[in-house]
């Protein structure tokens, strides 16, 4: 493989971190879901009550079940169904460390535009995650 086709340092670094984050997120998701399904960690919404509730819009589902919107779910993290959201949150977050890790490479190479784009992408994901939109902040 020539120099030109070998994965560039930014791509290689991003890929390594992404692989670790995705593996961790998916593994945690499966484990937490197993705990939830098995009943080892009691859920906030009993399994058998779900068919009557998952036909409702999300806002009414939250109102009926007492699960808060936004980051309020952290307060119920001891519940199996809510705890499973932690695995999902890791998947939705795992691009952020990857972006942060390539920023120094772009800065060192004088590629200020790419550096700024990474910073903006992190801010966009952070804004979406903040709960400022979606309620519960």
């Amino acid at each position: 493989m020539s120099e030109a086709t070998r994965a560039a340092p930014d791509q290689a670094r991003y890929a390594r971190l992404l692989a670790a984050g995705t593996t961790a997120g998916l593994a945690l998701l499966v484990v937490l879901f197993g705990l939830y399904m098995s009943g080892l960690v009691a859920p906030q919404v009993p399994h058998e009550a779900l068919p009557a509730l998952w036909t409702l819009p999300a806002d009414r589902f939250l109102a009926e079940t007492g699960i808060p919107a936004g980051w309020g779910w952290i307060a119920l993290a001891g519940r199996g169904d809510v705890l499973t959201l932690a695995g999902i949150a890791i998947l939705a977050f795992c691009s952020v460390p990857c972006l942060a890790a390539v920023m120094p490479l772009y800065w060192a190479a004088g590629q200020r535009l790419l550096f700024s784009i990474c910073a903006v992408e992190i801010l966009v994901i952070a804004f979406a995650a903040s709960g400022w939109i979606g309620g519960g902040h």
Binding site: D81, L85, I125, A128, G134
Partner: peptide
């Protein structure tokens, strides 16, 4: 990733589904 956070905050992610 961005859109998923909005759905998470809105309570529209149901682990059972």
């Amino acid at each position: 990733s961005s859109a998923a956070w909005v759905y998470l905050n809105k309570g529209a992610v149901l682990p059972m589904i």
